[in-house]
């Protein structure tokens, strides 16, 4: 727990870092998500499994399945975009946090949060381009997806992935998922992946660790 001695040390350390910007952690392996926008049926089992695992009250959702619909008859279309925290290579939430509650794991690039260190300033929520940090009003703290680090450390996959009955959501080393060398049922043999779908925030902002098998109306790059 912080005390007066720590306060002086914190001030001293902060003064040394004056005007220095944040240098992102470069992990040994960067884990990330793949989601098949077209084959996803929008059952939201991933959302429910996530809420169940994390004991979330009504309101905050770490994972969100968004129904995208559009066009004019007969040229209509629909697809789903499923996002949680994207465990960005250069996360915006991390440098915005004044208490150090958010950090990036060097071994797998997971951006984790200890909400017991959170003072509820909600800057991480504001800075994230993908709406991942979720404010829990009853506790006045922010929480977010940590890719179920306990499951990862136990050699299993996160609850959302395990709950996906269509196998359209998966995790793995994001570079191998992107270049097609990672075996996953979320990507068919002829599927191409993209880093950004339409109306998604610019990936260059934080380099999110997610790729999509996109709908023809939704692919951007």
């Amino acid at each position: 727990m912080a005390n007066q001695i720590d306060k002086a040390r914190i001030k001293e350390a902060a003064a040394k870092k004056k005007r220095e910007t944040y240098t992102p952690v470069v992990p040994e392996v960067q884990l990330g998500f793949i989601h098949h926008n077209v084959d996803c049926i929008g059952c939201r089992a991933c959302e429910i499994a996530c809420k169940d695992k994390n004991g979330l009250p009504p309101g905050p959702r770490f994972r969100r399945v968004q129904y995208i619909e559009g066009g004019t008859f007969p040229e209509v279309y629909a697809y789903k975009v499923n996002m949680s925290c994207n465990h960005c290579a250069e996360p915006a939430c991390l440098p915005a946090c004044p208490t150090g509650a958010i950090w990036k794991r060097p071994k797998d690039g997971i951006v984790d949060i200890d909400s017991t260190l959170c003072i509820g300033c909600r800057r991480c929520e504001a800075t994230c381009p993908f709406g991942a940090p979720q404010f829990i009003p009853e506790q006045n703290v922010v929480a977010k997806c940590n890719m179920c680090v306990d499951e990862i450390d136990a050699g299993r996959k996160p609850y959302c992935v395990m709950a996906c009955m269509m196998r359209v959501l998966d995790i793995g080393p994001i570079d191998k998922i992107a270049d097609g060398t990672y075996q996953t049922k979320a990507r068919g043999p002829n599927d191409q992946v993209v880093r950004q779908v339409r109306d998604m925030a610019d990936p260059e902002l934080t380099k999110p660790s997610i790729v999509f098998v996109a709908h023809s109306k939704g692919a951007v790059k």
Partner: peptide
């Protein structure tokens, strides 16, 4: 914001790098 985090971190004792300006 909370004056104290659930684990006891006091808001008044925190300072992020950008808050040194």
């Amino acid at each position: 914001p909370r004056p104290v985090s659930p684990a006891g971190v006091k808001a008044e004792q925190t300072e992020a790098w950008y808050q040194t300006l």
